[in-house]
Amino acid sequence: MKKTSLIQKLEISKKEFLEISKSIIQPSIISDQKKYKTLLKKYIKLEKIVSLYEEYNNKLAYLKEINIILENDSDIEMKELATTEKYKILENLSYTEREFSNLLFSSNSKEQYTTEDYRKAVIIELRSGTGGDEACFFVEDILRMYTMYFKKSGWKYKIIHAQKGGIKGYKEIILDVNGEKGVYGNLKFESGVHRVQRIPKTESQGRVHTSAITVAVLPKVKDIEVNINLNDIKKDTFRSSGSGGQHVNKTESAVRLTHIPSKITVECQEERSQHKNFEKAISVLRSRIYQNEKEKRLKKISIKRKSLVSTGDRSVKIRTYNYPRNRVTDHRIHKSIYDLAGFMNGNIQEMINILKLAEKK
């Protein structure tokens, strides 16, 4: 299909969407349930198209900015970044145009795997909370639990960033997880505070301590979904503090990116190449900005679920791992599993399935 014809179709869809938006809130429409359901179904379909169309236009505008940088900026590194971004934008504009065709003309556009639950990739962030060294130990334990679950599920993962704890374990670790459709649909339930009750290895008197870590599961988003202006990013480089040999520790290959408008900061130091660290950091930054905007949007239109099953609120205690009683309890659904050893070995799908059922209800 020619681009001009596609744009015409999209403009028609946008106009129709705006008309339905006005009519669907009218009392006469709401009182007529049959008519209301028909319009609502159409509204939901058109909302996806219009939202994607807005992102498409933002990308076109961003492409113009990139071309200006390429023509006028004398900074060689900035030009290299702009060239990389331009290649991605052109590729994604083409991808978006195919998505439009699916949404506009496919006879089976009801489910095009466009919802978040069908995403194949996520960013998982694990951070130690209250509990000092014991919290760092528990980050490592939860990391092992997830990696064993990934192996059982046939998913692949890479460590993007890792910050070691004082004695052992991790203060923070960020993973990039990829697999078949539904990676986010399963892992989204893990976002929140994970609490552990056990006798720490450093405890000499045998007392049970309570520590906590936070887990954040962010859907990994495509470039077309989040518009990041290079001029809004502050880039810092520094020497890696982790393992990796002479090259990593003696060159400034680690990258820190700060998104000035949102003040979101991302670090990456796992690769030997500064360019590769930059690419990974940009990926994490996109996911964090997307999640940040999503949460603001949900609050604004007041449709956030009362249930905490899938809100992804990282400040809410969702699960307790009680070692003395061999029990793991999910507080959102009041479900306990008395096989903590099995759970920590990656057998977490049973709990996830129950959470899925609770969300549907």
Rank of each mutant, 00 (worst) to 15 (best):
K3M: 07
T4E: 14
L10M: 08
L10H: 08
K14N: 14
L18G: 01
K37E: 15
K42W: 00
L46T: 06
L60Y: 00
Y87K: 15
Y95T: 08
T96H: 03
R98C: 01
Y118V: 08
I123K: 05
T130Y: 04
F138N: 06
E140G: 14
E140L: 12
M148S: 13
G154Y: 04
I167V: 14
S191F: 05
S191L: 06
Q197E: 04
R198I: 12
I199P: 04
S204N: 07
P219C: 12
D223F: 11
E225M: 12
K234Y: 00
R239C: 15
S240K: 08
S241W: 01
T251G: 08
V255C: 11
P261E: 05
C268F: 07
R272A: 00
S273T: 04
H275M: 07
K276V: 00
I282T: 07
S287M: 11
K299H: 11
I301H: 09
I318W: 00
Y321L: 05
N322W: 01
Y323L: 10
P324R: 12
R327A: 11
R327F: 03
K335D: 02
S336M: 02
N345Q: 15
N347P: 00
Q349W: 00
E350L: 09
I352C: 07
L355F: 08
A358F: 02
